[in-house]
């Protein structure tokens, strides 16, 4: 992912969520974003998980 795209993405997501941060604070998230995305994306590459149900159990009974 191009660096300019990362910065735009991070700024947009922060703005949409109502976060008003300093440039220094935004820079921290711009730096962290590629590693976060890489970690999350790596889970879609695990072929054994392709047809698994999510490990979330909703108990209908109160």
């Amino acid at each position: 992912m191009a660096e300019i795209d990362v910065e735009r993405k991070v700024r947009d997501l922060l703005a949409e969520a109502g976060f008003t941060l300093t440039e220094e604070q935004i820079a921290i998230f711009v730096e962290a974003y590629p590693a976060l995305r890489e970690g999350a994306d790596s889970l879609f590459a695990v072929k054994e998980a392709r047809y698994e149900e999510p490990a979330v159990i909703y108990p209908a009974k109160v």
Partner: peptide
Amino acid sequence: VQAHRFRSY
């Protein structure tokens, strides 16, 4: 959701 699917696996 994918993380929870991975978790099941």
